[in-house]
C-alpha cells in the first residue's frame, strides 16, 4: 500500500487520527485511548497487516509523556509510525499492546521503568532494569540525582 491508501485506511479505522507524511515515515497521531483499537485493526486487516513492531520509544515532551510505535508489515513491506500522548502527566496511563505484538511485553516494561507510564492490562507490570524500590523514572527530563548525574 502506498501512503495515500494507508492514510485512507487509517482514517476509516479511526476518523480522529491525524495522519501526516514525515520525511521518513507516514505518521499517525492518535488519542491515547484510541491506540489499542487502531493497532488491533491495523494488525488484523489483510490490507495493512502490520505484524512486526520494531521499535517502541517512550518520550518526555516536557509538559507531557508519550509513546512512539514503529510498525512494519513483513509481507507488504510498508511502514508506519503511531504517536500518542498521555493526557495526564501526573498519572500517565496507556493500554497495553501485548495481546497484539508480544514483543511489547518487555518494551512496555522498559518504558514503565524509565518513564513511569503505566500500561493497562499488562500481564507483568514491573520495573525491568532498575531495582523495585528505585525512586523516580530516570529518562524523564525533570529527573535529578545529584550523585549520578553530573551537571
Amino acid at each position: 500500500m502506498n501512503n495515500e491508501q494507508l492514510t485512507a485506511k487509517i482514517l476509516s479505522f479511526e476518523p480522529s487520527a491525524e495522519v501526516k507524511e514525515g520525511h521518513q515515515y507516514l505518521t499517525a497521531t492518535v488519542a491515547s485511548d484510541k491506540v489499542h483499537a487502531l493497532a488491533k485493526n491495523l494488525r488484523g486487516s489483510k490490507d495493512t497487516n502490520f505484524d512486526y513492531l520494531f521499535c517502541l520509544t517512550g518520550m518526555d515532551y516536557g509538559d507531557s509523556l508519550g509513546v512512539i510505535y514503529h510498525l512494519e508489515s513483513t509481507n507488504l513491506k510498508h511502514q508506519l509510525v503511531i504517536k500518542t500522548v498521555c493526557p495526564d502527566k501526573e498519572k500517565p496511563v496507556l493500554d497495553t499492546l501485548c495481546d497484539i505484538w508480544r514483543t511489547t511485553e518487555f518494551l512496555e516494561r522498559e518504558v514503565f521503568d524509565l518513564f513511569g507510564i503505566n500500561f493497562n492490562n499488562h500481564p507483568d507490570m514491573r520495573r525491568i532494569f532498575l531495582e523495585e524500590d528505585w525512586v523516580g523514572h530516570p529518562l524523564r527530563k525533570d529527573y535529578s540525582d545529584n550523585n549520578i548525574i553530573v551537571k
Binding site: C55, T57, R102
Partner: peptide
C-alpha cells in the same frame, strides 16, 4: 532510543 536486537530476542 536504541533498538537493541538482543532485548527483543530475550523476550522470546
Amino acid at each position: 532510543k536504541l533498538r537493541s536486537p538482543n532485548f527483543s530476542n530475550l523476550s522470546a
